[in-house]
Design a protein around this nucleic acid. Structure first.
Length: 697
RNA sequence: GGUCCCGUGGUGCAGUUUGGAGUGCACGCCGGCCUGUCAAGCCGGAGGUCGCGGGUUCAAAUCCCGUCGGGACCGCCA
């Protein structure tokens, strides 16, 4: 890192303004110091940079110099710390033998008009939150915002100064007027707190800054909401409107730093695995498959549009054709779909692609990156990520993004009812879940609620049974329809005990699983960020999911996904049973991302298009720029993309990705801070050949 | 596009069920007091068109309709 010089500590204006009584009137000389000249006390008190008056330069030096003369050794003690930010952060606090002492205070520099912004990093010697008892005796300068001030009469006040590392208590004995969120530079001596005044709740609670000289770098209006933990309860719209204030909070600063760690660890991991970072265009042709796109009108071709990328999918495959071998990008993706707790218009993905690899290779690459990111944040390396097939995920958890942190697995019951007389159970697939001990908690209302939920998910109905005392009979509206053998079969299969609640669904296999999967999550799923972290690869996704209006199968992943080699012979005969080489990575029930091995053979691609009902002409029209390259020799390749916002949110302990994005948008997509989106003036529209319709009223 | 929940000084709430004067609490803010506090303490003060519009009523924060804004979820996100 480039070495940056620190500003001589004496160049800033020393502002003396008053707080408390009589702020609007000049006051007489104060008792223990010759009264310095004072600026007019009326606020705003600060002159703008460049308009500094004659009192802004030299006097403070004089004050400090006087002070230094009064305290022999103080000047020498107060030295230049290694100036680069990284060094400051990591600098050992204990001075080791042999380590050179900090260079002496420079008092020989020419006076400056206010802080020199070209040396802003040098305005301080330390971060607020990093001072410790081992720093006692040092004279330091810290910069930050006033988190809190506590006054005790005219001549004692405590100022908690905050930067992104934390707060330090500064003892101010003069009558400087500092208020919430004023930006200060405070120079003082690190001292142990007097006996009985240690604050165990603060990492800096053993010490405080004494003999403080306060420079007001910026005055501030009171913030519209408290910038501490209480802001967690403030309306998110208010936090977003003043996001720049919200970001000062410990939680937000922590989250931004978690995110930076994730990015950094991912980048290091991918590079260590021989991936190279390549940027791909933000302006690309519209490819209307999949998510709705953001369109950008072309000025030079009025009436034509670029689209912003939903993902770099097409480009990264062309990078493979281009011999790049292993590509990655921490890529911004944009989708014009409705927002959610885990969705923004724009979001970041680790996008990766590799040539001459198998599915297992890709899973290993990505696993390594995710594990590295998790380790960078938590300090613990997660265990190897397990795999589960899509079919097993559906069968056991009823969902393709299973949350493995809790039980309530689906129990297979079909065989028990193979000869049932109960019409509702004459179905291809019968499954249930057991909620241990929940019978008493679920009265009629809650059970009706579950039934409604099941029906909303597509179930014909939901059968519930409460296991009676003794554990061998049920209380249930359908109890009378069940044979003794069926009752016994249920008790045995569920390993049911008195007080358990059993929920059963009978339908086609997929429906049965999905409905119970919804109920399972409803009944047992903890908030996503609660530990432990359970990563899982879901593999062998079906090649096709459902059929479109014309009866053609629809691709489960995307139309360039390679079919599973074992199922190639079923592509035409039984397409819906064909598996693909597509895979998802799931963490605590959130889909982190997905990927696949791609089709690199033009013949196979043509075959898939035929199955999807896409004619050659249509394929050429829609994907021509993408398909032609494959005629020139495409390597076998595959890749993956996962959402960095989601991973970061979970690792940061947040349930909402907005909390780990510096400037997110609320659910409406309207930015309360900037007002975007806005109308533009007619000339801009004319330039683009656009005309807007009147807004609906 | 849909379902549900929420809009009351700068912030967080109570008050709405059962209509009766902008009523209350906490924080913040402003002023005063206070030399060891730490989400300091004490005293005083300012600050609100109860999101907006309409309706019912003698009377609406409260009931009704509409609308705007926010959130969670469904649809959607190949």
């Amino acid at each position: 890192m480039r070495r940056r010089r620190r500003l001589p500590r004496t160049t800033g204006p020393r502002r003396r303004v008053r707080r408390g009584r009589d702020r609007r009137q000049p006051r007489g000389p104060r008792p223990h110091r010759a009264a310095p000249r004072r600026r007019h006390p009326l606020r705003p008190r600060l002159r703008r940079q460049g308009h500094a008056g004659p009192d802004e330069g030299g006097r403070s030096l004089g004050c400090l110099a006087r002070r230094d003369r009064r305290r022999p050794g103080a000047g020498r003690r107060h030295g230049h710390r290694p100036p680069a930010a990284g060094r400051v952060r990591r600098a050992p606090r204990r001075r080791r033998p042999g380590r050179p002492r900090r260079p002496p205070l420079r008092t020989d520099r020419p006076h400056r008009q206010g802080p020199d912004m070209t040396e802003a990093a040098g305005m301080r010697t330390d971060y607020c939150g990093e001072l410790r008892a081992t720093d006692v005796g040092r004279q330091v300068s810290v910069c930050g915002w006033v988190a809190k001030r506590r006054e005790h009469g005219e001549h004692l006040a405590f100022v908690d100064l905050r930067d992104h590392t934390g707060v330090i208590q500064c003892v101010v004995h003069d009558d400087t007027d500092v208020r919430s969120e004023y930006v200060l530079r405070i120079t003082g001596t690190v001292a142990p707190r007097p006996e009985g005044t240690v604050n165990d709740k603060l990492p800096t609670g053993q010490i405080e800054l004494q003999d403080c000289t306060v420079e007001i770098l910026s005055a501030a209006e009171p913030p519209p909401f408290p910038l501490d933990d209480r802001a967690d309860d403030v309306d998110e719209l208010v936090r977003l409107r003043y996001r720049y204030l919200d970001l000062r909070r410990e939680r937000m600063q922590k989250n931004l730093r978690v995110r930076a760690k994730v990015n950094s660890a991912i980048r290091r991991s991918m590079e260590a695995q021989d991936f190279i970072e390549v940027e791909t265009p933000m302006l690309m042709p519209s490819t209307p498959e999949g998510a709705r796109e953001f369109l950008v009108p072309s000025r030079q071709r009025p009436g034509d549009f670029y689209a912003l990328p939903q993902s770099p999918q097409l480009y990264k495959q062309l990078l493979m054709v281009g011999g790049t071998d292993r590509y990655f990008q921490i890529a911004r993706c944009l989708r014009d779909e409705d927002l959610r707790a885990d969705r923004q218009y724009e979001f970041m993905q680790l996008d990766a692609e590799a040539s001459f690899v198998t599915q297992d290779d890709v899973l290993a690459f990505i696993s390594e990156a995710v594990v590295a990111a998790a380790e960078a944040v938590t300090g613990e390396r997660p265990p190897e990520i397990q795999q589960i097939t899509w079919h097993e995920a559906m069968d056991r958890y009823g969902i393709d993004k299973p949350d493995l942190r809790f039980g309530l697995e689906l129990v297979e019951l079909t065989a028990i009812f193979s000869e049932t007389g109960f019409n509702a159970f004459k179905a291809p697939s019968i499954k249930g879940i057991k909620v241990p001990g929940a019978a008493a908690d679920y009265g009629r209302n809650k059970l009706d609620g579950l039934t409604d939920r099941a029906k909303a998910s597509g179930a014909k109905g939901l059968v519930w049974l409460k296991v009676d005392e003794g554990g061998t009979t049920f209380t249930s509206p359908v109890a009378k329809f069940l044979s003794e053998a069926e009752v016994a079969g249920l008790v045995a299969t569920f390993e049911a005990e008195a007080g358990d609640l059993l929920l059963i669904v009978a339908d086609e296999w997929a429906n049965t699983c999905e409905v119970l999967g919804v109920l399972r999550n409803e009944l047992g799923r903890p908030p996503v960020h609660e530990g432990p972290y359970r990563y899982v690869w879901v593999v062998d996704f079906p090649m096709f999911v459902g059929r479109d209006d014309a009866g053609n199968p629809k691709p489960g992943h995307h139309p360039f996904t390679h079919p599973h080699p074992d199922d190639m012979d079923k592509l035409e005969s039984d397409p819906m049973s064909v598996r693909s080489l597509a895979y998802d990575l799931v963490l605590n029930g959130w889909e982190l991302g997905s990927g696949s091995i791609r089709i690199h053979e033009p013949d196979l691609q043509a075959r898939i298009f035929r199955l999807l009902g896409i004619s050659e002409e249509e394929a050429e029209k829609r994907f021509g720029f993408f398909l032609t390259p494959f005629k020139y020799g495409a390597p076998p390749h595959g890749g993956f993309a996962f959402g960095i916002d989601r991973l970061t949110a979970i690792l940061a302990g947040e349930e909402n990705i907005r909390e780990v994005i510096a400037f997110p948008k609320p659910q409406s997509g309207l930015d309360p801070m900037t007002g975007a989106p806005t109308t533009v003036d007619a000339n801009q529209l004319a330039d683009l050949g656009l005309r807007t319709l009147p807004k609906a009223t």
